[in-house]
């Protein structure tokens, strides 16, 4: 269970997150909202990348006192809106780069990396340099990184951004496997509402840094306020 309690983030005079509270009890939950709503900012706060007010808990543990890299060592994993794997390392080394920093023995680290490669079915890519991968393969490697070392919280920022429909479907299947692979609570940001309603049991909707809805995904998507927020965006887009 991930608990956000009055999470507030300010950039200068701009309030990017305004006292967001939510309890994500389900294994996989979504965060949606129009562009600039504060979704990525929420993940950055949970990562400890920015100063925030409020409290972030996982079950009974609070992560607020940990700095960013200690949060990872504690059990936080995330992918980024723009993938952040190291181009000059092989896929294997990109996974190993996380295992290196976890409090595990050498053989446990190797086993974790192998487990991740197997779970994502990326063995054929393992020794390829990351720069030679296509967008989809990079996303697979990224997801592989996230399941290493018994994580407690996994956050995926638009994991299917820029992918083809089939690729999105397959990645969705893999994300659905995360709970049995790791036992972590997973948070997903995506603009693809079909994907969110397929894989997320609960969803938080943000708009202009405010929580406008939270609850079971189908109910949330039917909420008139949510529809209005999205319609507003669509009109802007035209």
């Amino acid at each position: 269970m991930i608990t956000l309690n009055n999470l507030t983030v300010r950039f200068g005079g701009v309030t990017a997150l305004d006292a967001i509270s939510a309890q994500f009890c389900q294994p996989i939950s979504g965060i949606i909202g129009p562009n600039g709503a504060g979704k990525t900012t929420t993940m950055n706060a949970i990562s400890g990348f920015l100063d925030y007010q409020g409290v972030i808990n996982w079950n009974d543990e609070t992560v607020d006192d940990l700095n960013p890299f200690k949060r990872t060592r504690w059990g936080l994993r995330r992918s980024f809106q723009k993938e952040q794997i190291a181009d000059d390392l092989s896929v294997l080394d990109n996974l190993q780069a996380i295992a290196d920093n976890l409090p595990l023995s050498r053989s446990e680290k190797r086993a974790e990396v192998e487990h991740a490669i197997e779970s994502m079915s990326i063995a054929p890519l393992a020794n390829r340099k990351a720069e030679s991968l296509n967008a989809y393969e990079k996303r697979l490697a990224d997801l592989g990184r996230c399941i290493i070392g018994n994580p407690k919280i996994i956050m995926l920022d638009e994991p299917c951004g820029g992918l083809q429909q089939e690729e999105t479907d397959h990645l969705g299947e893999l994300i659905l496997k995360i709970p049995e692979l790791t036992g972590a609570n997973t948070l997903i940001i995506d603009h693809d509402v079909d994907l969110i309603s397929r894989i997320c049991t609960e969803t938080l909707v943000l708009d202009f840094g405010k929580r406008i809805a939270f609850g079971e995904t189908a109910n949330v998507l039917a909420d008139p306020k949510v529809k209005a927020a999205y319609l507003g965006v669509e009109e802007d887009a035209k």
Binding site: S47, F69, T72, Q84, A86, D93, A97, D100
Partner: peptide, 24 residues
């Protein structure tokens, strides 16, 4: 070994390094 991988993550971005648990 580990330092080389940590350096590669730092080069990618500090956010990537932190997300890998690297003490930058």
């Amino acid at each position: 070994t580990a330092p080389g991988r940590a350096w590669a993550m730092i080069r990618r971005s500090e956010a990537a390094a932190y997300a890998s648990g690297v003490n930058v």
